[in-house]
Amino acid sequence: MLLTTTIATAKSNNITNTQVSLNLKNALVTDVFSAIENQTAYTFIFDNSITEIPQKVSINSTNEDLQTILKKISKQSGFQFKILNHTITVLNSREQKLVKGKIMDEAGLPLPGATVMEKGTKNGTSTNFDGMFSLALTEENAELTISFMGYISKTIKAKPGTLLEIVLQENINSLNEVVVTALGIKREEKKLGFSQATVESESLAQTAPNNWSSGLKGKVAGLNIVSSGSGPMNSQQITLRGNNSLNANGNNALIVVDGVPVNSEMTTSGSSNAYIGEDSPIDYGNGISDLNLDDIENVTVLKGPGATALYGSRAANGALIITTKSGKKQKGWV
């Protein structure tokens, strides 16, 4: 980085005759300016763009002329200095390290909102509606990391002064996530027009619940579970988005296991006769408690009648589509 010096003719020798002694290591450049001001008659002038940059320099000199010291600062920080009389104006030369570019997909369409970060720093920006971006670099030989939802991130070398054209490839694995909907129909998640949530078996087993349905608590928005007890065989009542009926059994979500609806109503005895003696009510559990947690591969929660229209009125309160584990074809090894 070149040092620009402009001084009056009558003062041409002042800066070279001014001796300064500094011993600063990893000091903010503004602290270096203050140390020079304390030892000389010169004053530094700079704007907020200088103070906002956490630029640090190391200077170790004894009775060295000010012009040489300014050259050292310029080499480490990239700042330029303009000297007039006893005033030193600090200029930010970051505009010389400005990188511009355009981010597109494989079809050449711009990607608005893509993130562009200078690798290893917090310096970044995002693209505009036309996929264009402009970023002032803070380091030499910087690299840019470009990311966009649904696309594979890319890291490239920054080239200031050149308009970069960056093409991102679609992340097929993330775009083609398949979920099981009503009647076991598999569809891509991005094409669904209703709310759904999928919980994998690993997530269900995190809390080691007595009943597998208890593992859904706190993992699906709008899902509420009411249990008659805490044992593994107690009946579970699962509702989605609150109660819609005054009938206690009219609020349950439909439970479907591998395409077969199961009974989710409570099976009990004596509840309508007596609450003491031999006729006290006994909870025999329901279809939910018959399932083994280790047999479940994932649970897809379909919310609202729009998601479960193929099941008719039984699924007016939503449905839980349970897919059990099955054998998979894969290469053997020895």
Rank of each mutant, 00 (worst) to 15 (best):
G231N: 14
M149P: 05
I15H: 04
S203G: 00
G231Q: 14
T300V: 12
K100C: 07
S61A: 15
N26W: 01
L175Y: 03
D130E: 15
R314S: 15
S201A: 12
G108A: 09
K25N: 11
L192H: 00
N244G: 15
G161P: 02
G131M: 09
G215N: 03
R187Y: 01
L254W: 07
Y311W: 13
N243H: 07
S58M: 02
I103G: 05
G332V: 10
S280M: 15
E170F: 03
P261T: 03
A35L: 04
K25Y: 12
Q80W: 00
S61M: 10
S203A: 13
D31F: 02
I172K: 14
K191V: 11
L175Q: 14
N123P: 07
G120E: 02
L164F: 05
K82Q: 12
I255H: 01
Q55V: 14
A274L: 10
L98K: 13
G312A: 09
D258F: 01
P112C: 10
K122V: 10
A316W: 07
N128C: 10
K75H: 03
K186L: 06
I238T: 03
Q237Y: 11
L302S: 06
N251M: 05
G312K: 04
V262N: 01
I15N: 04
T162G: 00
L320T: 01
D65P: 01
E140W: 00
T6W: 09
I296L: 04
P232L: 06
S313A: 15
Q206K: 15
I73R: 00
T267C: 03
S227F: 05
M149H: 11
T30A: 07
N23Q: 14
S313E: 15
G259E: 02
